[in-house]
């Protein structure tokens, strides 16, 4: 489990996060949602330790992350997988080399064991025969899947996904969402997803927090979204008249 406790974060005079306290649970897809500029990415980067909070604490299973030494931080990070918005695959490496990179860097596995693990991860994300392709030679959706494969190759305890559906068509987005949810449940991973995709909320939102102007404006799960009377949530989720109509008709049924 990951727990954020009273997190404040400012950049110069701009206060981006204001007293965020929340928990992210293992085996569940925990979503951080909100409009652009609400502070989602800052919160995510802060949870991983790429930003330090102005004040407040982040706990990984009761371990205060920001009180750890550099060496201890690295040992926690080896239990972390991350899927980036633009996948962040290394351009000069093939798909196989990208996925194998963490294994080469941190394990003493034999060549055969690494090969088997890479192929297992590729199969798990439903990708076959792309081992020798470079990231530029595969589609955006495939790049995301390779990103997931690389993120899970060391069997992480925590998985972070920054806008996993950005730039993808709705169908592929659902495939990626389902993949993340299945992997989360199978391996009891604490998954934190930063998104503004409404479909993701309704499909995989086990534990959702809505950020608005740096504060948590709403929290709940996908089943509570339709019935909530929170105005900020409604403005965000059902922004267009079409979506409002859809919601109304769903509620009438």
């Amino acid at each position: 489990m990951i727990r954020a406790e009273n997190i404040y974060k400012s950049f110069d005079d701009n206060e981006v996060l204001k007293g965020i306290t929340t928990e992210f649970y293992p085996g569940k897809t925990n979503l951080i949602i909100g409009r652009s500029g609400a502070g989602k990415t800052v919160l995510l980067k802060l949870l991983i330790g790429l930003h330090a909070p102005t004040s407040g604490k982040v706990f990984y299973d009761d371990v205060d992350f920001f009180s750890l030494s550099k060496k201890e931080v690295r040992s926690i990070r080896m239990k972390v997988g991350m899927l980036f918005q633009a996948s962040a695959l290394f351009d000069s490496m093939t798909v196989e080399e990208n996925i194998r990179f963490p294994l080469d860097m941190f394990t003493n596995m034999t060549w055969k064991e690494k090969e088997n693990r890479v192929n297992f991860c590729l199969e798990r994300v439903n990708l076959g025969k792309v081992n020798d392709n470079y990231p530029s030679e595969i589609s955006g959706g495939m790049q995301k899947r390779v990103g997931i494969a690389r993120a899970i190759v060391l069997e992480p305890k925590y998985l972070f996904c920054d806008e996993p559906n950005s730039g993808l068509d709705p169908k592929t987005s659902i495939v990626i969402d389902e993949l993340i949810r299945d992997i989360t449940v199978e391996n009891n991973i604490t998954t934190v997803i930063n998104t503004h995709d409404m479909n993701s909320v309704m499909e995989i939102g086990d534990n959702v927090i809505l950020l608005y102007k740096g504060e948590i404006a709403w929290r709940g799960n996908r089943d509570e979204v339709l019935h909530s009377d929170n105005e900020v949530l409604h403005d965000f989720m059902f922004a267009s008249p079409f979506l409002q109509q859809l919601r109304d008709s769903a509620l009438q049924k």
Partner: peptide, 11 residues
């Protein structure tokens, strides 16, 4: 391209 961030997060 966030490659450095990706490596940092790997440890």
């Amino acid at each position: 391209k966030e490659h450095i961030d990706a490596m940092e997060i790997m440890g």
